[in-house]
Design a protein around this nucleic acid. Structure first.
Length: 318
DNA sequence: ACCTAGCTTGCTTGAGAACC
DNA sequence: GGTTCTCAAGCAAGCTAGGT
């Protein structure tokens, strides 16, 4: 028999049919977790190069997945959820990621487990493990959360001031119905998969120079015209980098963003403010600061969904 | 500098329950 | 019977620490 795995450049492929008709799915993030599961299941160590044909996955049952999640959380499959001395050592979100990774590779993905077939991750025994670990977290018996806190308004202002101070704040058309606003359209973004998800969006100004997106955009455009890149009008150009190579531009932006953030977050003026507030600060909150602030000031989720850039102008009386 | 593991966040979608 | 609400599932990112 020809080595079916060789067709995929692999050696440790279990139970490959001689002429596989189905190409294995692959997802970089899920694959790592799935290989860990299969290694546990088969009591052997697969390399990250391993691929598993759907036909080799058909025997996976809900109790396999549930036991694996128990093992991940408690270090054993012999778990009594009523025993308050047994505490999970990982977060429920970690188990959920494991569950998603396993689900991703199941031959039957969409159907709930009906007792004999379906997706084994969509089953009561599996959901019960995750639920019990969540309950333990609530009771402070689980692993402590690693969540980081949001920026406060004081910290956000300090970030803006530091950016201006470092000279790196180099950084559309008027809306026809709202002459005091700008309209724009983003054709691709996170979680955007259809054209209808790219409506015209309105940018409103803020009565606060620290938060005004219009001022920031104007500054950026003026500077970029001077430097001759980004907003200067080249159709192949990216807005926030002089790099025009589609592969290099995101890396350039990412590196620049990291360097600037690191410089600001480690600056003495910012640390003087941040150290006064308890909790581990997450820089993730910088991009949702406006939404967090608006919700904190009483705006509804729907109002925040309008996605007004910068501080909500309506809250400023603008 | 780059990669990996563990974790968090924000969002959409769809099924089923609850409500009118 | 139609609408609204709730929740699980899934997708697509990003952050941080630690290792190489």
């Amino acid at each position: 028999m020809a080595n079916a795995g060789a067709a995929f450049g692999l050696e440790d492929v279990p139970d490959l049919p001689e002429a596989p008709t189905e190409q294995p799915k692959y997802n970089r993030d899920y694959h790592r977790l799935f290989v860990k599961f299969m290694s546990w299941l088969h009591k052997r160590t697969y390399t990250k190069a391993a691929r598993f044909q759907p036909s080799a996955l058909a025997g996976i049952q809900p109790h396999h997945v549930a036991d694996y999640l128990k093992w991940r959380a408690y270090g054993t499959t012999d778990v009594d959820f009523k025993d308050l001395e047994q505490n999970p050592t990982c977060r429920s979100s970690t188990l959920e990621q494991d569950k998603k990774a396993i689900s991703f590779y199941m031959p039957i993905k969409g159907a709930t487990w009906n007792g004999t077939s379906g997706n084994p991750t969509k089953s009561d025994p599996v959901n019960e493990v995750v639920k019990e670990v969540k309950k333990a977290e609530t009771q402070h018996r689980g692993k402590k959360s690693c969540a980081t806190r949001d920026l406060t308004e004081t910290e956000y202002r300090k970030v803006v001031h530091e950016l201006y101070g470092k000279g790196s704040f180099e950084s559309t058309i008027p809306a026809s119905r709202l002459p005091f606003a700008l309209s724009c359209k983003v054709h691709w973004s996170k979680n955007i998969s259809e054209e209808r998800q790219c409506p015209d969006q309105i940018i409103l100004g803020s009565m606060d120079t620290d938060f005004c997106a219009m001022l920031g955009l104007a500054n950026y455009m003026e500077a970029s015209f001077n430097y001759g890149y980004g907003a200067a009008g080249r159709e192949d150009a990216f807005l926030f980098t002089p790099e025009s190579d589609p592969k290099l531009a995101p890396k350039h932006c990412n590196a620049a963003y990291r360097n600037i953030l690191k410089a600001v977050f480690l600056s003495a003026p910012f640390l003087a403010v941040a150290l006064l507030i308890a909790g581990v600060l997450g820089s993730h909150s910088i991009r949702k600061f406006a939404a967090t602030l608006a919700r904190g000031m009483g705006a509804t989720a729907d109002e925040v969904d309008i996605r007004v850039a910068g501080r909500l102008a309506c809250l400023d009386g603008c």
